[in-house]
Amino acid sequence: MSEAMLSKVRKLLAQAEDPACTPAESAAFTAKATELIARYGVDRALLAARDPATDPVGDRVVEVVAPYARDKAGLLAAVADPLRCRCVRRRQGSGFAMHLFGFASDLERVDVLFTSLLVQAAHGLAATHVPSGEHPAAFRRSWLAGFAQAIGARLAAAEADAVAGSGKPSVALVLADRSDRVRHRVAEVYPRLRTAAPRRLAGTGFGSGAEAGRRADLGGRGVATAPGARPGIGR
């Protein structure tokens, strides 16, 4: 992402995170940051349609560590999918190695968002009371599932708005072609890929996690992929 775009997003996020902001003001700053990131994705896709060398299909591996590694991996997938990237989850010790596929600009957007959202999830969980008598880990897993679902829905809506707002009928076709090319790359690398069975979560935190996801700032400052470099979520 360009430095100019990053600078705009960072300023908006700093304003959104200011304790002096009202909830309405914070939501407005957050919405603008999300809009900028979505528009950036459309702009880069159109540029690459004219000059494919500017935005090649690529991949990278992101290590997701315990605790709650599977839930963090779910959040990464919830961010990646609306941004036209694909994740393959591989078990690695007590965590996962998430193999991401996508165009370079979209992988970059996933990086920016996922780092910020991990921090926000950690803060949100720390501030959320676990109901009396409920197992803390079960509550937190369901909270993270709600958070991830809300984030995914918000990103999908922002992407759709960016496409509609571009005023260019060709955008949808360009993006569909990009998604197909990413799927083909995944199939080349993982020809026998299987879909994981759905999880059954017993905790009651889904609703409060989803509400936190609807309030979250959709932006950040980049991702470090070294082992243990990501912000953690406490036990």
Rank of each mutant, 00 (worst) to 15 (best):
A20Q: 08
D43N: 13
A45T: 09
H184K: 12
R39E: 15
R140P: 07
R185H: 05
S94Y: 05
A122F: 05
L201R: 01
H184V: 06
K8Y: 06
R91Y: 02
R194I: 13
R44Q: 15
G41M: 00
L193G: 13
F206N: 12
V88Q: 13
D55C: 10
A78R: 00
G165R: 08
E134V: 08
G167D: 10
P191E: 07
R185M: 04
H129N: 15
P56N: 05
F29R: 05
A172H: 02
V182M: 05
A126S: 09
G228E: 09
Y190T: 04
V189W: 05
C21K: 02
A78G: 10
A48T: 13
V171N: 04
M5R: 06
F139S: 06
F101Y: 09
L155S: 13
A226S: 14
S7H: 09
A127S: 05
S170N: 00
M98H: 04
L117Q: 03
L201A: 06
V112E: 07
A77D: 07
P169D: 13
K72G: 03
A69P: 03
G58S: 13
R181F: 09
G41I: 04
A78D: 06
A127C: 00
S26R: 14
G146Y: 04
R194K: 15
D81E: 11
G213R: 03
R109K: 08
P169R: 05
A224Q: 09
H135R: 15
P52T: 09
L175W: 01
G228K: 08
P169M: 00
G152W: 12
D71K: 05
G203Q: 01
P136D: 12
M98A: 09
A121P: 11
T225E: 09
A162M: 11
H129Y: 15
A104C: 10
V57E: 07
R39W: 07
L155Q: 11
L100P: 03
A27H: 11
F114T: 03
G213D: 11
F147C: 08
A148E: 07
F29L: 06
A48K: 08
G207W: 14
V182S: 00
G58P: 01
G146P: 03
D161V: 09
I151H: 06
G102E: 01
Y40I: 01
R140E: 10
A45G: 02
R181L: 10
E188L: 15
V112Q: 10
A145T: 04
V130H: 08
A73N: 02
P56Y: 01
R200V: 14
A16V: 09
I37G: 00
P136K: 12
K32L: 15
A78I: 02
R194Q: 15
K168C: 13
M5D: 10
A38W: 06
V42P: 14
G152Y: 07
D111F: 05
G93I: 08
L173P: 03
R84N: 09
R230S: 10
G93F: 01
V171I: 06
G93L: 03
T34H: 09
R178C: 02
P198Y: 14
L175P: 01
A164I: 04
A216Q: 02
V61F: 06
P227W: 13
D217K: 05
L13R: 15
T115D: 08
E35K: 02
F103W: 05
H123C: 00
C21Q: 12
G102T: 03
G102I: 02
A153L: 14
A38R: 08
R60K: 07
L107W: 00
G213N: 07
C87N: 03
W143M: 11
G209V: 09
G207P: 08
